[in-house]
């Protein structure tokens, strides 16, 4: 399958890329890993007239800790995330999630920035970033802008990114001691989208009381969903079978999955409840270590 003809630019600086975006208008698309965009172009579901390849722009693929924040450059690949000791140390869920994203060859190319900017509720990082309370940094001609993750996903394949802006960085608060995180998705086979996926991050005190909770859901809602009632059900409470059960029930009630080849709505709601319970337990186990 061959994409419709387009013009290709590979700017060497962010300023150049942004001025190209402004010059070419709505007909321009950013190319990072391209592993969502190129398949869509081959199917002619996307037909941009200009592709602006940002891979030649230096400084967009670092993972670093600055004060209380971990900063991940938008061009960081899934494989870089998989092998990052810094991320492994603070966020055990990245080892869970990267292993389940597509396959090794795709992870060598696909980027975290692209995964988020695509705005697809079936992608895995949106739920992860909701659980981790991340902030998205967008850069445009007016400079940088911080977008809280809760304001980033605005609709079906729609994000808060304005035309002329490029997602350049993801910032995640360094979790305090006693924090654990976990992610799992059920997929029919390697490379499939999630039937349902759940990301959880919990901070526990010495008595197993949950000081804070973040829970994000994958592919069970038109836009990536924070399970707010589930988070509230855990916060300030001791983790018991009852509180975990309540959190799971809220998540299964508050999501809005559609019936498809991966399962019925009822099945997916059940699956969300099961995965929420399992991921809370797994995150708690890691938090206690």
């Amino acid at each position: 399958m061959i994409a419709q003809s387009f013009q290709y630019e590979s700017p060497g600086t962010l300023a150049e890329a942004i001025s190209m975006l402004n010059k070419y208008g709505e007909e321009a698309k950013i190319l990072s890993g391209g592993h969502s965009l190129i398949p869509m172009m081959k199917l002619r579901l996307a037909t941009p007239e200009w592709l602006i390849d940002i891979n030649g722009i230096p400084g967009l693929s670092d993972i670093k800790k600055e004060g209380d924040v971990i900063k991940i450059g938008a061009l960081t690949t899934e494989a870089d995330i998989e092998h990052s000791d810094l991320l492994k140390k603070h966020f055990p869920l990245f080892a869970d999630v990267t292993k389940l994203i597509a396959d090794p060859q795709v992870r060598n190319v696909a980027t975290i920035g692209g995964n988020l900017a695509h705005g697809d509720a079936a992608n895995d990082h949106p739920a992860v970033m909701l659980a981790l309370h991340a902030t998205i940094i967008a850069t445009g001609s007016g400079g940088k802008r911080s977008i809280p993750i809760d304001e980033f996903f605005q609709g079906f394949y729609m994000t808060a990114l304005q035309h002329g802006e490029i997602l350049t960085e993801i910032q995640i608060p360094v979790p305090s001691a006693g924090t654990g995180s976990a992610y799992h998705k059920l997929e029919r086979k390697v490379g499939d989208y999630a039937t349902a996926g759940v990301a959880v991050q919990l901070t526990l005190d010495g008595n197993d009381v949950c000081n804070s909770a973040g829970i994000g859901l994958t592919n069970v809602n038109p836009i990536p969903l924070r399970a707010s009632r589930s988070e509230q059900a855990l916060t300030g409470k001791r983790l018991t079978d009852e509180t975990i059960e309540e959190a799971a029930r809220y998540a299964s009630e508050d999501c809005s999955p559609s019936s498809d080849l991966r399962g019925s709505e009822e099945y997916k709601r059940h699956l969300v409840a099961v995965l929420v319970k399992r991921m809370i337990r797994k995150a708690a186990e890691r938090a206690r270590k």
Binding site: Y8, S10, L31, G34, H35, I38, P39, L51, D53, N55, A79, P104, Q105, V106, N108, V109
Partner: peptide
């Protein structure tokens, strides 16, 4: 040196 699927990469990206 990295394994990739060449059906999903443009030739211009290999420049």
């Amino acid at each position: 040196g990295k394994s990739v699927k060449s059906c999903t990469i443009l030739a211009v990206q290999a420049n």
